[in-house]
Simulated assay, not measured.
Amino acid sequence: MTPDSADVDLAVALVRDAVELAARIRSEGDLDVERKTSVSDVVTEADHAAERLIVERLQEERPDDGVLGEEGAASAGTSGRRWVIDPVDGTYNFTQGSDYWCSAVALVDGDELLLGAVAHAASGRVVVGGPQLPTTADGEPVPQLTDRAIDQISVATYLHPLRVSDDSLREPFLRAACLPATMRMLGSGSMDMMGVATGALGCFLQARTPPWDWLPGAALVLGAGGVAELVDVEGHQWGLAGPRSAVDSLVRALAAAEAH
């Protein structure tokens, strides 16, 4: 389904306003940082404020749509559509003064992904796209991805240190990690997939990716002519996005671990 232009414009406005709010809060001084599951899994008042901004705007402009936010916003709605919200993706980076973070949203209709939008605070860049929506960056079409072999490109990935001891995660990861030209571990899934969609990175690979970390960026990669797939290996779901041949190679490597 091709998304309505009004939904596209709204998604762009939501992430742009959210990322500007979060950046302004960070610039004002000390952040109130709370730990969630680990020292690097954190939330700040900026996350909560940016999520509230998006939810309140959606309540005004799309009152029948549901929402699902990383920081707890959740409603089913009545339209069958749902907005998936990541108010600050890369919060640990955000708290450490890094510019590798963003705000992101996705829109789904039932199980169908319609669009994703990602705004990068440091550059002011907004990228939007979807399976039936060619990806654009600040309104300009991005070049469609060309099919490339995995050994010719980089892979952006993440594996939390607390999970390295889990054989069912580590072994598939190591098999896949042997394949690319190089690896990048930067700490924001939506930023990573925006990089894949715009050509700055080659491919994306991550296990146990929640919907707010997966859907916005996956939409961008699909809109840029790539593929985005979720595969189950040894009880864990892996998200992969990028050129077809590269993704297929990574999937085979992950599955090989399950066969042993």
Rank of each mutant, 00 (worst) to 15 (best):
L68N: 02
D99Y: 00
I85P: 09
D65G: 12
V105S: 07
D65E: 14
G80Q: 09
S40K: 04
W101Q: 00
R81N: 02
T37P: 00
D32C: 09
G97L: 06
A76L: 14
V84W: 08
Y92Q: 10
A76Q: 10
V88R: 07
D32A: 15
A49E: 13
I54F: 08
V55P: 02
S98K: 11
E28L: 12
D99P: 06
D64M: 05
E56Q: 14
H48Q: 13
V105M: 09
R81E: 12
S38C: 04
V43F: 02
T95Y: 11
L68A: 13
Y100V: 12
D47Q: 05
H48E: 14
D47P: 05
V88P: 08
G90R: 02
L31N: 02
S79K: 05
D89T: 01
A73H: 11
D41H: 11
A46Y: 09
E28G: 14
E28H: 08
E60V: 15
I54S: 08
P87L: 10
A76D: 14
D89Y: 01
D89Q: 00
G97F: 06
I85H: 07
A73F: 11
L58I: 07
E28D: 14
E71P: 11
Y100R: 04
D99H: 10
E71S: 10
G69S: 08
A104P: 07
S98E: 10
V39L: 10
N93F: 02
W101C: 02
Y92K: 13
I54R: 08
C102K: 00
V42H: 00
S103V: 09
V88H: 09
D41L: 08
A73P: 05
R57T: 13
A50R: 11
E45Q: 15
E56S: 13
D32G: 12
E56P: 03
L58T: 06
L68H: 11
S38P: 02
W101A: 03
A73L: 07
R62F: 14
D99I: 01
E71D: 13
G90E: 03
F94Y: 14
T37W: 03
G97H: 04
Q96H: 15
R82G: 08
P87F: 11
D64F: 01
T91L: 00
D30W: 05
S103A: 15
E34K: 14
A49W: 04
G77M: 07
W83C: 08
V84Y: 07
D99V: 05
V39G: 00
H48N: 10
C102M: 02
V84I: 15
G97K: 03
W83T: 06
E60A: 15
D41W: 00
E70D: 05
L68R: 12
S75L: 11
S38W: 01
S40N: 09
V33F: 01
A76T: 12
S98Y: 09
G72D: 08
E56F: 02
T78V: 15
N93W: 00
T95R: 06
E28P: 00
V39F: 05
G66P: 09
G69W: 07
S79F: 06
D64A: 15
S40E: 11
I54V: 15
N93H: 01
G90W: 04
E60K: 15
S103P: 06
Q96I: 01
V43K: 00
E28F: 00
V84F: 04
V39K: 07
